[in-house]
Computed example of a mutant assay.
Amino acid sequence: MTLFNRLKTAAGTEWSTYTGHSFLQQLEAGTLPKAAFRNYLIQDYLFLIQFARAYALAAYKGRTLADITQGLRGLNASVEETELHVRLCAEWGISREQMEATPEHPATVAYTRYVLDTGMRGDLLDLHVALSPCVVGYAEIGARLKPALQANPDHPYAEWIAEYSSEQSQQLAADAIAEIDALGERFLPESRFREVAETFATATRMESAFWQMGLDLGAAEQG
C-alpha cells in the first residue's frame, strides 16, 4: 500500500465525514441554500490565498528542482482557482475587492494557519501531507458529483462541479499523491508514520469544519 493510501485508510472515519458532509449532499442534490454556497465561496477565496502561500513555502523548502516545480504548480493552481470564485461571486454583485475585505472566519484561520505552521516546523513531507486533503479530496468529490451534472446540465452548482471533476483537477490530485509517495521514501522512517498520519487526519477534520462553516453562515444569514 502506498503512503497516501495508508494515510487515507488511517483517517477513514475523518475522510468519510469530509467527503460525505451534508454540505456536499445538498450541493449534489442542488438544494444547498445559495446563502451557504455564497459564504463558503468567499471564505474559500480567502482560504486559497493562504494555500498559495503554503505552496510558495513548499517551493522554498524544496531541495531539488522537481520539489520547487511541484510547489510552483500548486501555487499557480491555487491562484487560478480563485478566478472560479470571482466569477461565481460576481453573479451576486460581489467584487474581488469585497471578497478580500471580508474578515476570515475562525475556521478559515484555523485550517490555513495549521497548514502553514505544519510546513514551517516540519519538512516538505509534513507540508504536502497537510495540503493533500484539499487538493485530493476536492478531486474525489468532483468525480463523484459529476453524474449529477451530466444528469442535469442546468444544475445550480454546475460550474463548481465541472471545475473539480475536470481533467486538470484530477491530474493535480494524482500529482499530489505521487509527490507524497515519493517524499515518503525520502523523509519518512516508519517511526514517524503516526505523526504524519495525525497531520493528515487533522487537516481532513478541518475540511469538514470548513463545510460546516458554510452551512452555519448560510443559516445565520437566512435566519
Rank of each mutant, 00 (worst) to 15 (best):
G137P: 02
H21A: 11
F37T: 07
G62D: 06
R6A: 12
E179K: 13
T13Q: 09
E81Y: 03
H105D: 08
D126F: 14
T112P: 02
M1V: 03
G184K: 00
A52C: 12
E140C: 00
A201S: 10
L217H: 05
R96F: 15
M213P: 00
A110M: 09
A178L: 03
Y55L: 07
D123G: 10
N39W: 02
Q50D: 10
Y55D: 00
M206S: 04
S22Y: 04
R73V: 04
E167W: 12
Q98D: 13
A220C: 08
E91L: 15
L46Q: 02
G218R: 13
W211I: 08
T82I: 15
A162V: 10
L7P: 03
A36C: 13
T202W: 02
I42E: 00
Y55M: 13
S208T: 09
A110E: 06
K146T: 05
A66S: 09
Y55P: 00
G119T: 04
A209V: 10
Q50V: 02
L75T: 08
Q98V: 11
V136T: 08
M1L: 09
M213Y: 02
A130H: 00
V79A: 14
I49S: 10
A203Y: 05
N76W: 06
S95F: 14
E104W: 09
V129M: 10
A110P: 01
A209L: 15
T69M: 15
E179R: 15
E195A: 13
L145C: 15
W15G: 10
A209F: 14
E167C: 12
D216H: 15
Y40K: 14
H85R: 11
D44I: 03
Q150S: 08
D123I: 05
R96G: 12
W160P: 00
I180S: 00
E221M: 06
M213K: 01
I141C: 15
C89M: 15
F37E: 03
P147Y: 07
P189M: 11
V79H: 01
N76A: 13
